[in-house]
């Protein structure tokens, strides 16, 4: 990988961290409502996996912790922020909010609040790719908690039987909302649970983006070559609570300290320093640039954008311009 790409990746991860932390501030200012699930601590996974896939070409789908996946997939960051603000210019026109970012123009097919629901949707996107004979794949990012849903087992089974081009990325952050994995899950190594479905699976360090990219490259190549699905598990940690109302009482400060030593941004920064690609002052400049972009572009755009009109409440329920040949009205309905 070129030096310029490695520096770009670091900048991207810093951007994602600062973006998420800025959404938290906006939430505290009550500019953002609803639920807000932050990705801080896990940036290396969405960044690394999508770096070696083809965002904009491949389909990407995930759960409710979806801002970073959407942006890395190609959704404009300002539109993601505007969605959190509930604005008409938002990714989902202010109708979805934090948990439901959509940008089908770059094949980012949504964030979903029902844990495990994206499994079959992802397989369906993959079925469409296979049916049309394209070289696209579908990439499904979900947490370890999702694997205790029936959709995990049902979908893995069908994806395997039908050899669908779908990559399942399990971001194992050890907690399903506030319940630790050992207390909810009989087999804590998630990749081992996949063996019942004849799908290749592997487990890796999710905090080192180089490890993520190497393993994801193999997985993406497997899926794109027509060999069927692949399941890749990354061990990771989220710094923030599950959502905003989470006190974090279920985990220890010591555990949080241990994981913060393996922060994906710090790990990658140290590597780039060792490689002589970057100095402390470059990082300072990068952080400044990122903060300026978030403030002067994302936040400004969101603040200044209009809200949806109340008279548009009923828009988008069904097709707003249906073809009368299929819909009606029924002619000659007086028998």
């Amino acid at each position: 990988m070129k030096a310029s790409d490695r520096k770009r990746l670091l900048r991207e991860m810093i951007f994602y961290r600062r973006f998420e932390e800025r959404t938290f501030e906006a939430y505290m200012e009550r500019k953002v409502g609803g639920f807000l699930h932050l990705y801080s601590g896990q940036e290396s996974i969405a960044t690394g996996v999508l770096e070696v896939a083809r965002p904009g070409h491949d389909y990407v789908i995930t759960g409710y912790r979806d801002h970073v996946h959407a942006i890395k997939a190609g959704a404009p960051a300002r539109e993601v922020m505007a969605e959190l603000y509930g604005k008409e210019t938002g990714s989902s026109r202010g109708r979805g909010g934090s948990m439901h970012i959509f940008d089908p123009s770059v094949n980012f097919m949504g964030g979903y609040a029902l844990v495990g629901q994206p499994f079959p949707l992802a397989a369906g996107l993959a079925l469409a790719c296979k049916h049309k004979g394209t070289d696209q794949i579908a990439i499904c990012f979900l947490g370890d908690g999702a694997n205790n849903q029936g959709t995990f087992h049902e979908t893995l089974n069908m994806a395997s039987v039908w050899k669908l081009p779908v990559l399942f990325v399990c971001e194992n952050n050890l907690y399903a909302i506030g319940t630790r994995i050992e207390r909810s899950t009989a087999v804590t190594d998630q990749y081992k649970r996949v063996c019942g479905y004849n799908i290749p699976a592997s487990q890796h360090d999710g905090q080192d983006i180089d490890v993520v990219m190497d393993s994801a490259r193999k997985a993406v190549n497997h899926v794109r070559s027509g060999k069927g699905p692949y399941f890749v598990e990354y061990l990771t940690y989220r710094y923030r609570g599950h959502s905003m109302s989470d006190s974090g009482a279920y985990r220890s400060k010591e555990e949080e300290r241990e994981w913060s030593k393996r922060d994906p941004i710090i790990l990658f920064t140290d590597k780039l320093k060792d490689e002589g690609l970057i100095k402390d002052e470059d990082i300072k400049a990068m952080e400044k640039e990122v903060d300026d972009e978030i403030e002067n572009d994302c936040i400004k755009f969101s603040e200044e954008s209009p809200e949806p009109k109340v008279e548009d409440l009923h828009k988008y329920v069904l097709d707003d311009n249906p073809d009368p040949r299929w819909i009606g009205p029924l002619q000659n309905n007086e028998a």
Binding site: F119, P120, A123, G124, A126, L127, A128, G150, T155
Partner: peptide
Amino acid sequence: IDTPISENSFTGIAIGASMAGI
């Protein structure tokens, strides 16, 4: 396509496919 007896997920697969032009 003959499906296994997995109504929620094969419906979900149909939904995902429908989002991509099927």
